[in-house]
C-alpha cells in the first residue's frame, strides 16, 4: 500500500535535518523522484538549514588556519596529479601562479637559445620580442601534463590580432615521424589548428603562430603530439595546456 502524500510530506523536515530513519528516508527519496511539490518544499527546508547558523555567535578562523589549509592543499596537489575535467582535453591541475613562476624561470633561457644560434627561430624570436614589449600583449602560461611534466610554455598574443608567439621549454624531442601541434579550443570544444613545431635537443622552441582572431575568454589552448605534418584534429596525447583565463595581466 502506498503511503499518502501528506504523510510523506510530513517527513520532509526530519529528512532535511538528517534525522529521519533510513527506511523512511529511502521511502521519501523514492517519492521525491516523482513529486516536484515536495522537492520544492525540501529546498526550502534546506534553506532553513543553511540559515540557522546565522543565529550563532560568530567564530573567526585564525590566520594560521588559513595558512595550514593552503599548505595542505599544496601538499595534496604535489602528491597527486589529480584530474579534473572531462572529455578530450585532459585537464592538468593548473596553478596559474606556479605556472607563471616556472615559465618565467625558463623563458629567458629559451629566448637566449634562440638569439644565440637557433636557426629559423629568429623570425619567431623577433615576433615574441615585439609582443613582449607591447603593453597590449597578453601572456598565457601553459603547463605540462602528466605526459610531459617538465614542459612549460608561454603564449604571447594580442586580443583580436592573429599574430602570436609561443615559447616552449622542457618538451622531449620527437622522432622524425612525429611533431608537436598547437591547438586553440573554443568553449564548445571546436579546435583550431595553431601550427606545428619541433623542439631542439634541449626541448626548447620559439614559434611564430597565428591565433584565431576571436580567441577569447572561455577558450583553452594546448599542445599535442601528432604525426609529422600535423593532424586535422588532435589525435595524440596532450603535453601542454593553458587557459585564456590564466593569462598574465
Amino acid at each position: 500500500m502506498s503511503v499518502p502524500h501528506d504523510m510523506l510530506r510530513d517527513d520532509l523536515p526530519a529528512y532535511a535535518l538528517g534525522t529521519l530513519d533510513p527506511q523512511a528516508s529511502a521511502r521519501l527519496q523514492r517519492h521525491l523522484s516523482e513529486c516536484d511539490e515536495c522537492v520544492q518544499v525540501l529546498r526550502e527546508y534546506e534553506d532553513v538549514m543553511r540559515l540557522l547558523p546565522f543565529g550563532l555567535p560568530h567564530a573567526e578562523p585564525s590566520p594560521a588556519a588559513r595558512r595550514e589549509l593552503l599548505r595542505r592543499v599544496r601538499t595534496d596537489q604535489a602528491s597527486s596529479q589529480r584530474r579534473v575535467g572531462a572529455g578530450w582535453w585532459p585537464h592538468v591541475r593548473l596553478h596559474a601562479l606556479t605556472a607563471l613562476v616556472v615559465v618565467a624561470a625558463v623563458i629567458g633561457g629559451a629566448l637566449f637559445w634562440s638569439l644565440s644560434g637557433g636557426d629559423d627561430g629568429d623570425d619567431a624570436a623577433e615576433t615574441v620580442a615585439d609582443l613582449r614589449t607591447d603593453s597590449e600583449t597578453q601572456i598565457i602560461p601553459l603547463l605540462g601534463s602528466v605526459a610531459a611534466p617538465r614542459a612549460v610554455a608561454q603564449l604571447f598574443f594580442q586580443p583580436g590580432e592573429m599574430r602570436a608567439g609561443l615559447v616552449v621549454s622542457g618538451l622531449p624531442p620527437l622522432p622524425d615521424d612525429r611533431t608537436y601541434q598547437l591547438w586553440f579550443v573554443q568553449p564548445d570544444e571546436t579546435r583550431h589548428d595553431g601550427g606545428i613545431f619541433d623542439v631542439d635537443t634541449d626541448g626548447q622552441a620559439i614559434v611564430a603562430i597565428a591565433a584565431p582572431a576571436d580567441y577569447a575568454p572561455g577558450w583553452t589552448c594546448g599542445v599535442t603530439e601528432e604525426p609529422a605534418g600535423g593532424s586535422i584534429s588532435p589525435t595524440g596525447q596532450n603535453v601542454l595546456r593553458g587557459s585564456y583565463e590564466d593569462y598574465d595581466w
Partner: peptide, 26 residues
C-alpha cells in the same frame, strides 16, 4: 575549484570560513 584553481578555494574560504568554523565549533 573543480579545475584546480587555488585562488577559487581561497575565495570560498574567505567567504565561508567563518561560517564553517562557527558551525563546527557549535
Amino acid at each position: 575549484v573543480r579545475h584546480g584553481e587555488e585562488t577559487a578555494l581561497s575565495a570560498l574560504y574567505d567567504r565561508y570560513g567563518g561560517l564553517i568554523l562557527t558551525v563546527a565549533l557549535r
